[in-house]
Each structure stands twice: as structure tokens, then as C-alpha cells.
Amino acid sequence: MHVLHQTAASSLSLPSGSYIYAIAAAPSHFAAISSDDSLRLFDGQSLQPLAITSAKAHDGVTALKEFHGSTTDTYLLATAGRDGAVRLWDVRSGQHSKPAVEMRVEKHAPILSLSCDPDSHSVVAGTELVSSQATVALWDIRAPAQKRLQYVESHNDDVTELQFHPTRKNVLLSGSTDGLVNLYDINVADEDDALLQVVNHGSIHHAGFLSETAIYALSHDETFSIHPITNPDSEEQNEYSPIKYGDLRPLLGCEYVVQTLTSDNGQGSYLAAGNTTNVWRLPGAHGEEIVRAVHIDDQSRTVFTGGEDGFIRAWRQPESEEMQDPSFEKTNTRTKERKKYKDEKRFKPY
């Protein structure tokens, strides 16, 4: 077991009683959104606030994502909110800047989830259930006034998670409180024909890609599973079966699971979990307050956390321990993928 030590802490000059919702990387620094609806930049070493990109990013900000492509020089931050808007921010614009791009969903439905693929200039948002409709909407940011596509029948409750496949960017994952995780081919216009796979797991808190061939699902009651991405053209992959861990709380000795993290340097995927009464590996953490956000920065070998105490905190393994453990186990437990699965039929929920 490796214990990370707190190296810095900052309230980012937030109003008293504010929560940190999410953390993302920006060029040479980091960004956070919080319950005062602001988008703020901070230094990754000292955690001192650098700029307030927007004091009011949304009326009810909900999501923050990086917008940086591997084949482009574009580096924006994407936010979404309960006002039904998606906004892209140029972090070089300084204090109290205006969004570079804005897109909106129909009926101003509150947006709960967001994902970006800068290489294809794509942004996708998922909404709450409004008037019996939960929407997955995708835009090309070069034409923000008109949606590239919209799915309105695949989920019948709030869309809580969206993610693009790590290499096949035409494949999109969505998760919902209706219990389903869906995979789509966004190059197919018809919604029914676009659906590639459905996993029935339970009310989705988080879901995403663990690798090119596996996805995970984490429910609001902390139930966790790993599923193969089915391929009807491959007999070998059709031999694989899902791995169902059940409730992670007794397995990890925790009270709640924050999120699943994938390392940018290819070292694997990690689970971040927490306790309000006692703490494992991040001594003191955010005290009695819940951890809302965790971000791993591979370059500086730092874990950033944000919590309901309104603080951003930075954590690192002592240099002496890093020398002994170059793999740098960053969070509570590492998720291991099984190499063999059993046959699952296309479109059939598990």
C-alpha cells in the first residue's frame, strides 16, 4: 500500500460553502468548476488561483472537459450546465472572457454529461429527462448553430455519462439512470441502426472505455462490472463474458466510489474511492466532506482532488517511495481486465 502526501491546498478564493465539481488540465495549468458556477484556472504546483475565466460559466454548471486534439493545436475548455448550453472557452483570453463557441439543446434541457473529440471537432452532450425525452446531442463546433445528430429514443431517463472510443472515434458510449450503457456508430444517421451494443447494468453513475475492447459500468449503488465490446465479425471476441464485481464498497473498504480514471501514459485504469469517517492512502483528504473530483497528472506525477469543503488539494508519493515504485500507484485500487470473455449477442442487454 502506498500513501500519498498532501503537497498543497487551496480554496481558489471561492466563496465560503462552495463545492468543487470537476478538474481538468489546461496548457501549463489546470481548471476547476464549482458550485458558484465559476470556471477558474490554477497553478499545478502551488494550487494558487491564476484567473477566473468566467465568474458565471452557466446558470448551474455541471460538466468540464478538455478540448485538446492530438492532431490540432486547438486547446479549449468545454463546459455545460443546467441552462441547456455547451460553451467552449479559450483559456488564453484571460480574466472574465466570453465563450469562443456556444451550442444549445432543445427546450433548454439541463445538461448532465459532456464529451469531446477535438480531432473531429465534435462535442456531445447528454440531458436530463424533460417532457419524457432524454437527449444525446452532437455538434461539429465549426457549425455550432445546427446539431450534427441527435438521439432521443435510446434512453428513457437522465443521460449521466458520455465518452468517445479511444481510437475508433466514430464509436460513442452513453450511460443513463435508466440502467443502460449504449454504444453507437455516429457515422450512421438512423438512431436504431446506429446502436451497436446495449449493456443493462443499473442506474449509471459512471461508464466508459477501459481499453479498445472493454467498457466498465459503475452504478449509483456502487456496483461495478466490466464488459467486452462485442464484435459480430470476430469469433474469438464472441467467446468473452462480462466480469461482475458487485458492490465495490465491501471489496475496497470504502463508503463511496468517486470515479474511474485512465492514465494518459498507458499504465492502466484506476478506481478512486473514499470514506467520510476514515481515509485510506490520502491521509486527511477533505476531512468529513465528500470528494467530488479526482484528476491524475502523469507529467508531474500528481493527484488532484476537489471536494465539498471547497478546496483543491494536490497529492504526491514521497520521492523515496517513487524511486522504489516507478509504476506510481496513484489511487485506491487498480482495475484489472480479464483477457478472455464469452459470447454475447449484438443488441442483447446483459
Rank of each mutant, 00 (worst) to 15 (best):
G84R: 05
G84P: 08
A85M: 15
A85G: 07
V86Y: 10
L88I: 09
L88K: 02
W89A: 04
W89N: 03
D90F: 11
D90Y: 12
D90L: 12
V91L: 07
V91Y: 10
R92W: 07
R92A: 15
S93A: 15
S93Y: 02
S93T: 10
Q95N: 15
K98W: 09
P99S: 05
P99E: 06
A100C: 10
A100H: 10
A100E: 13
V101H: 12
V101Y: 09
E102R: 13
E102M: 13
E102Q: 15
E106D: 13
H108D: 15
H108Y: 15
A109R: 11
A109I: 03
A109L: 08
P110Q: 07
P110G: 06
I111N: 01
I111Q: 06
L112H: 04
L112N: 06
L114T: 01
S115N: 12
S115H: 10
P118F: 05
D119M: 08
D119N: 15
D119R: 06
H121N: 14
S122Q: 13
S122E: 11
S122L: 15
S122M: 15
V124N: 02
A125R: 00
A125H: 03
G126M: 07
G126T: 08
G126K: 00
E128P: 00
E128D: 13
E128N: 10
L129N: 11
L129F: 08
V130F: 12
V130G: 00
S131M: 14
S132L: 11
Q133F: 10
A134Q: 07
V136R: 02
A137F: 00
W139C: 01
D140Y: 05
D140G: 04
I141S: 02
I141L: 08
I141R: 08
I141Y: 13
R142A: 07
A143M: 13
A145F: 10
A145R: 14
Q146L: 09
Q146T: 13
K147H: 13
K147Q: 15
K147T: 14
R148S: 14
R148Y: 11
R148W: 07
L149I: 10
L149T: 11
Q150F: 02
Y151G: 00
Y151I: 01
Y151N: 02
V152E: 12
V152M: 12
V152F: 08
V152S: 14
E153G: 05
S154T: 13
H155K: 01
N156Q: 12
D157C: 10
D157G: 02
D158C: 06
D158R: 00
V159D: 02
V159K: 00
V159F: 02
T160N: 07
T160M: 09
E161I: 00
L162F: 07
H165A: 03
P166T: 06
P166I: 02
T167W: 01
K169A: 11
K169S: 15
K169L: 04
N170F: 11
V171N: 01
V171T: 12
V171E: 05
L172V: 04
L172M: 09
L173N: 01
L173I: 01
L173E: 06
S174V: 05
G175V: 03
S176L: 07
T177S: 12
D178K: 05
D178T: 09
G179D: 09
G179L: 03
L180Q: 11
L180N: 09
V181G: 02
L183W: 04
Y184Q: 03
Y184P: 00
